[in-house]
Design a protein around this nucleic acid. Structure first.
Length: 807
DNA sequence: GGTGCATCCTTACC
DNA sequence: ACAGGTAAGGATGCACC
């Protein structure tokens, strides 16, 4: 039997003490297939120099005899091979040691205390990684498998009949099909089922599940404890019935992906806990196994044969830094990425829901799954490309952070360099690394405050990555101190390849815009940007603080050199931060400036590249609030099309109240558009008057601050901590990571601290005029108007001066 | 009990 | 613990008078 298929999910199992790989995929005709592949795991023993053939053979004989009995099984060295390999760029002789069961690789490696052995490596990789590395069966690429069909076969203990699949093949040969998948097409349309639950008690398993919604391209339904004549609602007579109906529906849909939003941390653990309570097995796996959880920093929920995706995890690594949303809630993210929102519904305890409210609740629940489904579709190209490029199953790659993604990419591209994989740092090593002093980072130029006209912004493309490539900075090329070898290392070479791919797909995207090429280009961009952080990250296999420090230092030197050249050419440099430079054109034209930019590029080292980010009509830089010199990381620009770019100002900070943010935003825009402060001052006066007359909507005065750690770990009791404590008193849910909302109210108390005036949003009380005037509005506009020599304090307080702290 | 510096804390920039 | 350093700025903590 022979068929084409795409690998989606990977797993392995033991049979008679040996490991077998189990790949779940789809055939090119859409059938769900399970491919079972024989795979013997192995690790490396790298030999010290200068051992003759005879000595090596003796060693091999000794190693071949190693056997261990542990965890109720016998494992032994099955085979030893001598290879010429590279380790950290240097040629070595190494023994490839094959073991019966790879789970015992570490224990067997521990038995290799021979003086001839320099290092033992790759026993700390997982078997799936080893398999993909060696056999190159990469997720979502097309393969042709031939072998024996298992149909009610007793092979592997009737494994095929234990799974809900269309076809099971014991592989004899798996061959990659060279058929190039056209980048325009998405090669395979996954079957997706999105889900979401509603409960009264947010504590995992703390109360009954009221309803669960399920959405695919075929169904839109809510299974609910509440009877309803809404067409999409299926009634469950009790929670056990609800759970069974849920399981049955998932099985009926038979999806490739079961998708939730924060479902690793909430929906699936909740379902599992309630299933246990009802003595029901949450047997969602295609082999009828239950959901499995693994604890890391985050809870992770795995279902055998169906890829469980928690969209929030992927959003955090691949999207968060490019999103404007202030939180990563489903509502905000869906609004930004899809232009759709959750249904308006004020959640309250199910006991107090009226009949109409149940209808709305059902719709609300359904909408969450609809949004989750649509978000998945939107992100699918990105996840697919991540999986293919990192050569890592989508279950894993969608949960990994960027450092792990860089590492996966490196590990799976090492074979081109004949390299053995370096080990993961263990606990002591990590602690040691974390104690190392920080190195000096980027250069930030102190700006001179003012309103400027006719500017350009230059920036280096993927600056740190191109520094790493241009100066060959990595662990394997590190000699000593700040010295690095001239001989090109695998890490910089791989990174250069990444940058080249990024360029190639960016160009392709311009010619032919489509989501797949965009996703590919973006994945390479994210990889390039994370490479620097990776080398400085204490958990990295290829950690090299010297390389990270040198990268930062050489980047700094490069930008300072360029700034000098720009000045010499007669431009005025206003500002610079890390990889960008803002300059005044003065008497120069745009085209002269572009010519000059080309000239600058000719003299840059290696692959470094300086780009024009944009030309700007005006820009404003302000003073720091403390001191009369320019504030870094705070500026605003307007380009010639009228597009405004605001950085660092309170406008973009979520821990300032809306009133102050909106006011500052308007004032910045007025000033940039008009080039003077006239309208801005009028607008400020108007808002001030309204605030003093208590005409401002309290919604605009809410301050939101995130609880970054458990409440009892705070040393300083700040306003948001007080607010959170009050919430607990009122038995409102308070969790680490939550945005705490409060406003500052008028109080009779003479205490001066803000925290003594904190009130929760729902609480009665009038807003504190002096606080919002002196600590929100004034600080937000003061330094902007100061550029025009306006004393804002006098303006809004009248002639009578007031101390800043007073309110 | 007010002053002023240190420290904590959050959130931004790149 | 899950990429790095640089920076602004609010609010409290606390020694000091």
């Amino acid at each position: 039997m022979q068929t084409n298929f795409i690998p989606i999910d990977y797993d392995y199992f033991d049979f008679q003490g040996k490991n077998y790989i189990k790949i779940i995929g789809r055939t090119d005709t859409g059938k769900r297939i399970c491919v079972i592949d024989d795979f013997q795991g192995s690790f490396w023993a790298i030999l010290k120099n200068n051992f003759g053939k005879e000595k090596i053979n003796k060693l091999i004989t000794k190693i071949e005899k190693i056997k261990i009995y542990e965890a109720g099984r016998e494992s032994k060295v099955e085979k030893v091979e001598l290879h010429d390999k590279n380790f950290l760029g240097k040629p070595v002789k190494a023994l490839k040691i094959f073991v019966t069961n790879f789970k015992d690789a570490h224990r067997i490696a521990d038995k290799l205390g021979y003086k001839e052995i320099f290092k033992r490596r790759e026993y700390d990789l997982d078997l799936i990684t080893k398999y993909i590395m060696e056999k190159k069966i990469i997720p979502f690429k097309l393969y042709e498998v031939s072998g024996q069909v298992l149909n009610n076969s007793q092979e592997f203990g009737w494994i095929d009949s234990s799974m809900d699949i269309d076809l099971c093949i014991k592989a004899e040969k798996i061959k990659q099909l060279k058929k190039e998948i056209k980048s325009k097409e998405i090669p395979f349309k996954p079957k997706v089922l999105a889900y979401d639950i509603e409960v009264d008690d947010l504590k995992i398993g703390g109360g009954e599940i009221l309803m669960v919604s399920l959405v695919s391209n075929k169904i839109k339904k809510v299974i609910s404890l509440k009877k309803s004549n809404q067409k999409f609602v299926e009634h469950a007579k009790d929670e056990a019935d609800l759970l069974n109906k849920f399981i049955k529906e998932v099985k009926a849909q038979n999806p490739d992906f079961l998708v939730g939003y924060y479902s690793d941390g909430f929906d699936l653990p909740y379902l599992k806990a309630r299933a246990e309570k009802n003595k029901i097995k949450l047997a969602l796996g295609i082999d009828n196994t239950s959901v499995k959880f693994s604890r890391g920093r985050n809870l992770t929920a795995k279902i055998s044969g169906i890829v469980h995706i928690d969209l929030l995890r992927f959003i955090k690594t691949a999207y968060a830094q490019y999103l404007q949303s202030e939180t990563l809630s489903l509502n905000e993210v869906a609004n930004e990425l899809l232009g759709e929102r959750k249904k308006d519904f004020e959640i309250k305890h199910s006991k107090s829901l009226g009949e109409d409210e149940w209808l709305a609740f059902h719709e609300y629940n359904l909408q969450d799954s609809i949004l989750t489904y649509k978000l998945f579709q939107k992100m699918w190209p990105d996840m697919l490309e991540f999986s293919r490029i990192m050569q890592t199953p989508i279950f894993t790659v969608s949960r990994n952070g960027m450092s792990k993604n860089v590492e996966s990419y490196v590990i799976h591209n090492l074979e081109k360099f004949n390299e053995i994989v370096e080990k993961r740092p263990v606990h002591e090593e990590i602690s040691k690394r974390r104690l190392r002093p920080k190195y000096e980072g980027a250069f930030v130029l102190q700006p001179k405050p003012g309103l400027y006209e006719n500017l350009a912004m230059f920036d280096f493309t993927s600056m740190y990555a191109s520094v790493i490539v241009s100066y060959n900075l990595s662990l394997s090329t590190h000699l000593n101190g700040d010295k690095f070898s001239k001989q090109r290392g695998f890490f910089p070479k791989m990174l250069e390849q990444i940058i080249n791919y990024r360029k190639k797909f960016k160009i392709e995207l311009k010619k032919n815009p489509n989501p797949m090429v965009k996703a590919r280009s973006n994945a390479y961009k994210l990889l390039a940007n994370a490479a620097y952080g990776y080398q400085g990250f204490f958990g990295a296999r290829y950690y090299c603080l010297e390389a990270a420090a040198a990268t930062a230092a050489l980047a700094k030197k490069s930008i300072l050199d360029v700034i000098e050249k720009i000045k010499k050419q007669g431009y005025h440099v206003v500002y610079s931060d890390t990889d960008s430079i803002a300059l005044l054109l003065k008497n120069k034209t745009k085209s002269q400036t572009l010519t000059f930019l080309k000239q600058l590029n000719k003299n840059l080292p290696g692959i470094m590249e300086l780009d024009l980010e944009d030309f700007y009509k005006r820009g404003i830089w302000v003073t720091k609030r403390t001191g009369d010199f320019g504030a870094k990381k705070k500026y605003a620009l307007i380009n010639h099309k009228g597009k405004v770019k605001i950085r660092g100002f309170e406008t973009v900070r979520r821990d300032w109240c809306r009133l102050a943010r909106n006011l500052q935003n308007k004032i910045i825009r007025m000033v940039l558009k008009e080039g003077n402060e006239k309208h801005a001052v009028e607008y400020l006066k108007d808002i001030t008057k309204k605030l003093k007359n208590r005409e401002i909507d309290k919604k605009l005065l809410i301050i939101k601050t995130q609880l970054k750690k458990p409440l009892d770990e705070y040393k300083a009791i700040s306003p948001h901590v007080v607010a959170a404590r009050r919430m607990i008193e009122k038995s409102m849910p308070v969790d680490m990571g939550m945005l705490i909302e409060y406003f500052v109210a008028e109080t009779r108390s003479k205490k001066a601290l803000v925290r003594d005036k904190v009130k929760l949003v729902g609480e009665k009380g009038e807003y504190n005029i002096k606080y919002y005037l002196n600590r929100q509005i004034l600080p937000a506009v003061e330094n902007i108007l100061q550029v025009f020599d306006i004393n804002t304090k006098e303006l809004i307080e009248g002639k009578k001066q007031m101390k800043l702290g007073e309110f």
